[in-house]
């Protein structure tokens, strides 16, 4: 009964480019690290500070961590982008879905970012900056060569459609 948000293309379907399957590893590693840090704080509070309720927090943290690991592949698969005629379309999230369309002409700057795990796997994240801070468009988990190609292509597209401010 509940309806999912889905932005369809002009012909009703959209060919989303998905990110590299290796990106799952990045998601897993980052959620593991955050879970471990939170768990360490909880253990510290429980054993050292002797806050008896900290073990409840520990259980919750571990449960959330496990849930994150389970949905990690789906989270990675939920990221997608499409290069449409005049704009870039991006989607993210399963629980919290988000669709953004950025016309090529509005792009101010393109960033390629590579974290430590990204580097090990040969991945990169492409970030798009517009004049609006709230745009927050980024495509993580691209193979490095693709990221560089996509950046050059987008710069070219943005150049041909520049609208200025």
């Amino acid at each position: 009964m509940s309806q999912r948000l889905d932005v369809a293309g002009p012909d009703g379907t959209m060919q989303w480019h998905r990110v590299s399957p290796k990106y799952v590893v990045v998601v897993i590693v980052s959620s593991l690290i955050s879970t471990l840090i939170a768990a360490a704080i909880a253990v510290f509070a429980w054993l050292v500070l002797a806050w008896w309720w900290a073990w409840i927090a520990l259980i919750v943290i571990v449960a959330i961590g496990i849930a994150q690991l389970i949905i990690a592949p789906r989270r990675a698969r939920a990221i997608g982008y499409v290069l449409r005629d005049d704009d870039l379309l991006m989607r993210r999230g399963i629980m919290f879905q988000r669709f953004v369309a950025v016309p090529y002409g509005r792009m101010q700057l393109l960033d390629i970012e590579r974290g430590p795990v990204d580097r090990m796997l040969g991945l990169a994240e492409l970030r798009f900056v517009t004049a609006a801070a709230s745009s927050r468009v980024s495509v993580p988990g691209l193979v490095e060569a693709d990221a560089a190609w996509l950046r050059d292509r987008l710069v070219e597209l943005a150049e041909s459609r520049r609208t200025g401010l």
Binding site: L5, F96, Q97, R98, V100, A101, S135
Partner: peptide
């Protein structure tokens, strides 16, 4: 002509209510 981008989003609460 001067907007930068458009976003639609839906969290669990809005999904239950068929909203975005």
């Amino acid at each position: 002509a001067r907007m930068q981008s458009i976003e639609v989003a839906q969290g669990p609460l809005r999904r239950v209510l068929d909203l975005a």
